[in-house]
């Protein structure tokens, strides 16, 4: 359903994502996993159209997200949802108005109907009765759940999840994982989940893409990933500090730096 061709993103001279082909299957949960700085959030933002790629194409059906008009992009987005890493609730609005926001914006439904729909969505995330609270009064886990309710308020076809479980206690993160799994299967949504939470990723995903330094190093079903023979994949799954993915991120040799022999060009200022 969503296909990315030779997709890449440069920030200045640094490649956050090297040319990559990605295929997201519709109605399935795809998990994009990798360590910090592996380019997974960049990939998600590109797929959601929040950032323009440096090169490549993103095909939604037969439309290229990189060349369509703003108007069409906004039309497409009415059938998309996104759960942000820090929830991104509009902090001037209470829980009810946050969840109702997409409905107020894009439908002419009666307030009574919207009220019912909001109650249903909040019931789904277990927060019915908290409509009047402001985002600042919510705990991290509750904010995530409200944001989840908002993301699925319009019953979208595609939902993006950016680190849905990061910064949450095990119970809350379990709740969110279950919610993703359940709603995706129930509503036949296409879900794209970015996470570095290995157990959560392996348990909910139908398809896993493993990124390292802006490149895909493994791809497949959870079982294929688990039984991969790639050393880097095994290191990531087990969380070993050193291995083929080196512990040290320094590019100059340690002994040179200690003896003040810088290997890089330095400008005197």
């Amino acid at each position: 359903m969503i296909r990315a061709e030779r997709l890449s993103k440069l920030f200045g001279d640094v490649a956050a994502l090297s040319p990559t082909d990605v295929h997201i299957r519709s109605g399935k949960i795809t998990a994009i996993m990798g360590g910090s700085g592996s380019g997974k959030t960049t990939l998600l933002r590109l797929l959601a159209g929040l950032e323009k790629p440096s090169s490549g194409h993103i095909w939604y059906g037969n439309e290229d997200l990189c060349t369509i008009s703003d108007k069409r992009l906004y039309q497409l987005r009415e059938s998309m949802g996104m759960l942000f890493q820090y929830s991104a609730l509009l902090n001037s609005l209470n829980v009810y108005d946050n969840v109702a926001f997409p409905l107020h914006e894009h439908t002419d439904l009666d307030e009574a109907v919207i009220r019912t729909m909001v109650s249903m969505k909040l019931e789904q995330v277990g927060l019915r009765g908290f409509e009047h609270l402001m985002p600042s009064e919510l705990s991290g886990g509750m904010a995530k759940r409200v944001a989840f309710a908002r993301a699925i308020a319009m019953d979208p076809k595609i939902v993006f999840f950016d680190e849905p479980t990061s910064g949450l206690d095990p119970i809350s993160s379990g709740v969110i994982s279950t919610l993703i799994k359940d709603t995706s299967t129930k509503n036949r949504m296409t879900s794209i989940v970015v996470t570095h939470d290995v157990p959560a990723g392996l348990s909910i995903a139908d398809h896993i893409i493993l990124l390292w330094q802006g490149r895909i190093i493994a791809e497949g079903s959870p079982d294929e990933i688990r039984h991969s023979t790639d050393e880097r994949v095994q290191q990531f799954l087990e969380g070993r500090p050193d291995g083929p993915i080196p512990f040290s991120r320094s590019t100059t040799s340690y002994i040179d730096d200690l003896t003040h022999k810088p290997g890089t060009v330095r400008l005197e200022s």
């Binding site: 933002r45 929040l50 906004y74 987005r77 009415e78 942000f84 902090n91 997409p102 993006f160």
Partner: peptide, 14 residues
């Protein structure tokens, strides 16, 4: 900072 503008963008609000 809190990605609220991105959230608006994703909710098809410019």
């Amino acid at each position: 900072v809190t990605e609220q503008t991105d959230a608006l963008e994703m909710m098809a609000v410019n």
